[in-house]
Design a protein around this nucleic acid. Structure first.
Lengths: 343, 343
DNA sequence: GCAGATCGTGCTCAGATGAGCAGAGCGTGG
DNA sequence: CCACGCTCTGCTCATCTGAGCACGATCTGC
């Protein structure tokens, strides 16, 4: 009966546009409640709200689009797939793992490490030889790996790490633990990370066993490493490789942090070439050109060094927390909302 | 080959149970991410996680049951249907409306009022005569009602409310606004809420017009009212009906708040019979026995009086916020998780 | 006042999903 | 050693749901 209809409309209030929009929003809320909280079918909801079931479907669609319905996965091992997608797209990464960021920094490190371990377990093809760095983060990753996480993965240390002062052997134990849990062998690099004199470094490097280890490291199918912050609380200062003054000097030269022992600037360049020459182990280019280099990094303090590494292609896989991920994306060069349409 | 299987199990680690549970949980998290964040079908997820699509469905079910997936409807007009169900079940209410509780008290009052207005609009059958109380909350409800919210609903005031000091006429304006917006007429009760002397009250009550109004109020199809807290910031003190000393005395006698001008204790009884005798308007029994009495109440401060009203059957419909609702349910007598299985 | 653009609606139909069922693996107790 | 119960699995089938389409209503510019 189009006659009656037209009549009613002409006689009614002419504020239709805004009115119906608001009414629809309220309807959408009611529909969402009945659908998501009461587990009713769209058909039932249609009967309750006096609309067709197709309209209910559209209302729910609107509610999702407009963010009225928020779906969250609350679990320590949850991930942020959308951020991962954006990261891989923005920085041309091979893969990215992003975990939700709890406020507590300790908890955050643990989750990132766990995620890194999960990733390592699932890497295909299995890297027969894995190059690893060392440090607190890497050690946590090693601990998270389950016994027998792989079969016959050999591990090689990619930078020196015989601690001069406290906690001797952490560097070695990390590599050994990863290898042992996969039933493989660990090849250690039993030298200091940074030598005091260039000549000493050259001499050690010339040693048959040491050069053999480095040579072996160059052939690794994947590298696993973290990064340190350039400040006086760094492990390099703690371990006695660098004095607090050295560190201050590095910061003055623009260093933001270290990657496998080498201090870099925000531009991704070596902060102090002279110091770098005295640093033993793999070079940055080898990391960059490797088939797979996995950076494990999390926490506010490490944002600057994470930026430097990711923006300059030093890693091909990134394991991090969501705050770091967002920070990276905010600074991304050409993230013109690419990868924004997941429908 | 059951032989080989059994062998493997006997030889392996006997922590099978925990292991698979944990693995399933992780799988459930991954499935949830792909389903809810990536909009993949259960079939696609099955292909990715190497399980059948039926298992994916079960994993998602588990994830929902275990609370891994949290679905929230974020909207000022959202409601808490599960709490509503629990309230109606626990207290034998005819209906309950629960809105989410924002931290801001002002905002909360606004939402409760809006919800009350929404409810009033949708009440069926339409009450041809509506008895209303007055106060800040009720005034807000009146303002929230849309113009033409109903057709020909008449309104009658159920308790006295001529203010002695500031803001004269708020009581009247509430009733008038509700009636006017529904195209009906308002019948006012132009008397003080509480009289100083019993004789005066009797005299006013004996007046033909006043008794007529009260008589009319008794026939209302529904009552709409709020409640006040028993403290010196009460409107009764503000308006001069009670002195701060009166109020202190009331509190000593166990008063938690007032319902249509009558102060009650936590046990639902009249706190001070002498004072009550001087209070003009409908009695509590008439509220209790009415076909529908709608209580609109929200906010931390009003929890005690809300408890008293709801637990002693003074309202049949409750409009409130979720904190108040939870508070009521926590104190509920026999809420043996009834109404907990909405599947 | 009218043709074209735009929007919202109700529908068809195929694809996605959940309930229910039979069978296999696994532990338990006779 | 086997019968029994329990749990988990994969399946069938009915139901639910979203994409796409045609239609009518409204809005816009000429």
């Amino acid at each position: 009966m189009p006659e009656a209809r037209r009549h009613a409309i002409q006689g009614g209030v002419p504020m239709a546009a805004t009115d119906t929009t608001a009414a629809n929003e309220l309807l959408a809320v009611r529909a969402a409640e009945l659908y998501y909280e009461e587990n009713k079918t769209q058909d039932e909801i249609g009967a309750i709200l006096r609309v067709t079931r197709w309209k209910v479907g559209r209302l729910l669609q609107q509610a999702r689009d407009r963010g009225i319905i928020r779906i969250e996965i609350v679990h320590p091992r949850a991930r942020r797939l959308s951020l991962e997608r954006e990261l891989t797209a923005s920085f041309g990464l091979r893969d990215a793992i992003v975990v939700p960021g709890p406020p507590d920094d300790r908890e955050l490190q643990a989750r990132v490490a766990e995620a890194a371990a999960d990733f390592l377990v699932s890497v295909r093809p299995i890297p027969r030889l894995l190059g690893v760095s060392w440090g607190r983060t890497l050690h946590q990753v090693a601990e998270c790996l389950p016994e027998g996480w792989s079969t016959g993965v050999n591990v090689v240390q990619i930078n020196g790490g015989v601690s001069l002062s406290k906690r001797p052997g952490t560097a070695a134990s990390t590599a050994v633990m990863i290898a042992q849990k996969a039933g493989g062998e660990a090849t250690l690099l039993p030298t200091p990370a940074i030598l005091e004199r260039l000549e000493t470094k050259r001499a050690i490097e010339g040693d048959r066993t040491v050069s053999g280890v480095v040579q072996r490291a160059r052939g690794a199918a994947a590298y696993l490493y973290s990064a340190g912050v350039a400040d006086t609380s760094s492990v390099h200062v703690d371990s006695g490789y660098l004095t607090p003054d050295d560190m201050r000097s590095l910061v003055e030269k623009g260093a933001v942090g270290d990657v496998i022992g080498r201090y870099i600037t925000a531009e991704g360049t070596i902060a102090d070439p002279e110091l770098d020459a005295r640093t033993l182990g793999l070079g940055l280019d080898e990391l960059r050109d490797s088939p797979m280099s996995i950076l494990v990094i999390g926490g506010e303090a490490k944002h600057p060094v994470a930026h430097a590494i990711v923006q300059h292609g030093l890693c091909s896989v990134l394991v991090t927390d969501e705050h770091t991920a967002r920070s990276l994306l905010d600074a991304a060069p050409d993230s013109t909302t690419s990868g924004e349409d997941p429908s």
